[in-house]
Amino acid sequence: MTKRAPLSLLIFVIVYLLFLYAPVVLLPLFAFNDSAIIAFPLDGFTMKWFWALGEEESLFRALKNSLIIAVSASLLSTCFGLLTARALARHQFLGKQAIFGLIMAPLFLPEIIIGVSILIVLMQLGLNLSIWTVIAGHVLIVTPFSVSILTTSFSNMDRSLEEASLDLGETNFGTFRRVILPLVAPGLISSLLIGFTISLDEFVIAFFLTGTDPTLPVYIWSMLRFPSKLPTVMALGFVLLVMSLILLSLFEYFRRRSEKLTGGYGKTQHHIAQEGE
């Protein structure tokens, strides 16, 4: 495999990477640029946009909202995913395929349709828009991811492991705690992180279902209307970029740790989960 790649392929890769990452590189560039206008040439180094960020109280409220929503949505969808995946993997019941299809449907529906539909339903029910309505919307779109990740986790698990545990005198709950949970743990972590990430940067549904408490993406969008705030948005973008890198590293750390704990099993689990993604 030491054969050199053809030049055309090399060029393709470079262009591809540039296209993918150049905009991301621009973020820190303008975040530290001492000018209110987002354009070249650069003016000089400054941290003032970051300090300005610190004074945006509404920004912190939006961030707090987003975190509450992302954590709740990923937790809820992972719980639903766990229950659904287990039912799908272990039991035969009427309309199984139809139910699976309905759960997965939000994956293929345009988010704008989902957002508008939920909004209409909420209006009809006379419910007020709040953080909770956004959580509900996000659970709807994140659950399919949780279900598909956890279904692979469950279907890779030998059914007789559960029976062996029961056979050795353990209760149903004990079996769940001592056998099932440790074995689907990598899937659970993947599901939580994916749910968190999707919910954190989801805009369309949040835009429709947000009340007086905007999420971070909605807040950023609202800031874009004021050109003077643009560098601050860049600074915010940079902070978010760093945060997601930290999150990714954490995820990788936990994944490797759980892999170590579950031995070879965790490895295959994750590979399958990755393919699923």
Binding site: S160, L161, E170, T171, T262, G263
Partner: peptide
């Protein structure tokens, strides 16, 4: 889990 029987499974079902 209450029966005085224990089983050796075909797949062995060793907890991984």
């Amino acid at each position: 889990n209450e029966r005085p029987t224990n089983m050796v499974f075909q797949s062995y079902a060793i907890f991984p």
